[in-house]
Design a protein around this nucleic acid. Structure first.
Lengths: 251, 251
DNA sequence: CTCCTTATTTACTCCGACATATTATTCCTG
DNA sequence: CAGGAATAATATGTCGGAGTAAATAAGGAG
């Protein structure tokens, strides 16, 4: 028996260590644990977390580690803490949902259907506009990156991690080609969102449709410098992706 | 002389306390100090900050406070620290520029012209699309909030804080009416950005143009449920705002 | 000479106890 | 009953030391 003698006491601590690895610090693990708990609705907005000392010793960690984790959550707008009042979960609209890490926490459990819809709606706004700008501003280097990414998608298909990475690279390259730093940053968030949703998509079943032609159409329009065509092709692409995801979430 | 005896040593510490107030914790002040330093280019990506102990005692704060500040910066993607290697400033595209606090830091010093342009380009993408959705989904309560905000803008004008707050409320109400949580969250970032840019705008001179009619046009279209008209009116509004800001930044 | 292994050193990481500051609550006074 | 002062609860800030991970340098094998 390598198990701890008092399974009940060490329960929280054990679960914590599972999510620890190289480069993954202790406070990071705590933040992850609390973050997913909040995002999954285990703590509702307005709820107050049990005191610093109590929580720290329940998790078998020092107060410092716990506090640093709380600072992370505070920085992402999930909680706020004041003396005497305790640490409260903030209302949802204060949450930094576009933060890649928060996004990851949101999709750690069962993803919220509503939120996925919202995310796709955001993609449907951003990406066609980005494609339009990319068609106007891309240079040869951008096109090469996109082309390579397309090749990667063809080679690996979206059922593999490598394939999904290539997909992300493709969308990333488009954002990059807009020469707009704000959009590039958004790409990190949207990329993460796409990653989680497509991964979710894979869970239920194989894709019935080949996504490559849609991507090629977008690429061709951008390469030709046809802004409106690029925007339209990207709009179609996002719509189809939404359809696929929706249908796979319903059953 | 109320100055400290050893001006040199306490320099950093003094500057720190200036930014401290009620609700503003020590580590928050440190994060603000370092955040603005990074955003202003005082530390370039790749630079390594002087060690934990050294920095902490230079600022006359405990290592714990310093560490908590670093965790905040880490959470926002500005820095990363590893044993032996030290704490390094990450490349710009890892920065969470859409985080309201990061945005505030970015505009704490002289705003970067390029970045302002990018931000307006993002507004020009998001807000018309948001207006389109709002026209389709708004209810009576949404319209009332917008109407009140418009009244507030008329009463106070954009030269006052109250007027700018009303402006923000108006744009916020539109985002809210989209019923899209992801967009609402973005509004926090964009709202902050608009706040900083308009504040910057005021610095140089009075506004030559009355912004109210543009806003009324948007409101009317949304109230009438005319999606395309709302999108177009909002597009005009953002374009004009960009023009105003651009002209005031050039001199 | 090059590459891999090992040792060392350096800086972050985590700890826990102590002192302080803040504020929600309570209770007292007018 | 209302307002304000005392109280208690809780987070905030401090300190210094032990632990740990990783970059660099030294040493050995091929």
């Amino acid at each position: 028996m390598t198990e701890p003698k008092s399974a009940n006491d060490e329960d929280g601590a054990e679960r914590l260590k599972e999510t620890r690895g190289p480069g993954r610090r202790l406070h990071g693990a705590i933040a992850h644990k609390l973050g997913t708990a909040i995002l999954s609705g285990q703590y509702a907005p307005g709820d107050v977390l049990s005191g610093e000392v109590a929580f720290a010793e329940e998790l078998k960690v020092s107060r410092s580690a716990y506090r640093e984790a709380i600072q992370v959550l505070t920085a992402k707008g999930l909680v706020a803490s004041r003396p005497k009042a305790g640490t409260r979960v903030l209302p949802r609209d204060r949450w930094n949902l576009l933060d890649p890490e928060v996004l990851a926490w949101a999709f750690a459990g069962e993803p919220d259907v509503e939120f996925v819809r919202d995310l796709f709606e955001l993609r449907a706004i951003i990406e066609p506009a980005a494609a339009r700008l990319a068609a106007q501003r891309r240079d040869k280097a951008d096109l090469k990156v996109m082309k390579d990414a397309l090749a990667g998608m063809r080679r690996h298909t979206l059922t593999t991690d490598a394939g999904r990475a290539a997909d992300r690279d493709f969308h990333n390259a488009i954002l990059q080609a807009t020469r707009n730093h704000a959009l590039v940053v958004l790409s990190a968030s949207i990329g993460a969102a796409v990653h989680w949703t497509t991964q979710f998509k894979q869970r239920s079943r194989e894709l019935p449709r080949n996504p490559i032609p849609d991507h090629v159409r977008v690429y061709d329009a951008i390469a030709a410098g046809e802004a409106e065509a690029a925007a339209e092709a990207m709009g179609v692409l996002v719509d189809l992706a939404l359809e696929d995801t929706r249908s796979s979430m319903e059953n």
